[in-house]
């Protein structure tokens, strides 16, 4: 899986309350409407500026807080090809993979807002095309890579009639 797009940069500790705020709780059964508010408390212009395939790039502990999988879903609906961060909170990490959204752990200090990136998910490599720097990414555990390659957990579970760990 090779993904290409532009970086939209965020800082550390972007909580699920920032990604999809509790005040839109009632929109959770209306995902296209909910997605219009993706990350709006962190960057009010995020949805407007996103182009399909672009990346959400953040600092440490991305997605901390609630278990709401809607956080991963609205990021996917915003068009993001992947989320890159120095580290992820664990529930968000699972949710992103379960939704078929690559969650890439790498040194995002080497990426600035607007940089063009090329992400090789299997190889675990992020190429910053703008600066020419190649950033190694932490490989996903096999079990999670299987889910991602199948397109998400529902698809994975149907295809394998259960989990495939190896």
């Amino acid at each position: 899986m090779i993904l290409k797009g532009k970086a939209h940069k965020f800082g550390d500790d972007i909580s699920t309350d920032l990604i999809t705020p509790g005040r839109y709780f009632h929109l959770r059964t209306n995902l296209p409407e909910l997605a219009k508010h993706t990350l709006e408390d962190a960057d009010p212009d995020f949805v407007k500026n996103m182009r399909p395939g672009d990346f959400v790039v953040a600092g440490g502990n991305f997605g901390l807080g609630s278990s709401r999988e809607h956080a991963a879903i609205v990021i996917k609906l915003s068009g993001a090809g992947a989320v890159l961060a120095k580290s992820f909170a664990r529930i968000f990490f699972r949710n992103a993979i379960n939704q078929g959204v690559p969650a890439i752990i790498c040194d995002t200090d080497l990426i600035a807002a607007g940089d063009e990136l090329e992400v090789d998910v299997e190889k675990g490599e992020v190429k910053n095309v703008t600066t020419g720097v190649v950033i190694p990414a932490k490989p996903l555990p096999r079990a999670m890579l299987n889910i991602l390659q199948d397109g998400g957990l529902v698809e994975h579970f149907q295809k394998n009639k259960g989990f495939r760990l190896d």
Partner: peptide
């Protein structure tokens, strides 16, 4: 805690 898809499984 987990997300809804894990819990559906």
């Amino acid at each position: 805690g987990m997300g809804s898809t894990d819990i559906a499984v």
